[in-house]
Design a binder for these strands. Sequence first.
DNA 1: CATTCGTGAAGACGAAT
DNA 2: ATTCGATTTCACGAATG
Length: 335
Amino acid sequence: MTRQSTETTSHTHNPNEQQSDSPNSRVCDECGGRINSTDSHGELICNDCGLVISESEIDHGPEWRGFETEDKTEHRRVGPPMREDMYDKGLATDIDWRDTDTNGNTLSERNRQRMNRLRKWNKRYKKKSQSDRHLKKALDEVRRISSALGLHTQTRETASVLYRQCLDKDLIKGRSIETVAAACVYTASRQCESPRTLEQVHRVSRVHTQQTDHSPVSTRINRAYCKIADELGLAMEPVDPRNYLNRFVTNIDQHVTNQPELITTAQDVLTAAEETQYHVGKAPTTLAASAIYAAIRLTDRDIQQKETAEATDVSEVSIRNHYRKLMDTYNQNQQ
DNA sequence: CATTCGTGAAGACGAAT
DNA sequence: ATTCGATTTCACGAATG
């Protein structure tokens, strides 16, 4: 459905591309345009056609840190930074499985047995307690969901921090690990301004709707999210509908020409709507979808309501109910 | 014929009572 | 806890081109 990075990673090996001025600049497969470095939502976006290339971010920074001048010049390697999304924060030691020393020489029989014993106890220690296993399972789930939603590393780490805080506050009791993990990812995606809808999170989560639950979104994840935001004292702002535009437009599977024009028009439509306070009380997703359809009309494109509705998970009716008004306020604002 | 438009019923939600 | 109003969605049929 969405285009992922698999197509773009290949020409990293092309020597011609190594000359580019920034490590992030690449060329779009679709239109040959320059690809922007990540925008504020952590998504790689083509400058020309607006195609979302890849939502997962690669850290191009140095893996070393220097505390004294000679450290910096030597580029001494000191290991990766701490990671909140690994249950031991990435700090644990592992013993190599090869029975060789650092020079590659095979070990003596006596030393091999010693290493075997050490490996065994190291493993036992790492999986020691029940809570460690719980945390590992939970953070694996956070990682899985984040990756399925194309969220970038910073968002995933935020979700992981949230989960640890939930654990501290005993918020897991009565809920499944999967539910809390999904709720943490949902919360983090909003905090990091690359929001995913509850519906999107629910679709990739392993939280089943109850048999009696007819609502399209998971009440469980929503309740967990409310509880988390309340207990952790998070002041959650309403989602800015503009943050949905890139993703929604990319979701329209028909090839959209000149995406940036469409997106900026939709942005202006939303800005105009805010000035008349039209947006108050309306769902952000509905506003984003309606603004996109209004922009489609304003720029004379041949894309149907149905397609817009399907790409945004907003009903056709809701789009119908709003896009005229949005077009009107936009047009008034232009004069 | 495909698409858009309008409608009433029904559910969910927040604010007010 | 209940009521009320606004919003959203569904199912359907009518209007439009």
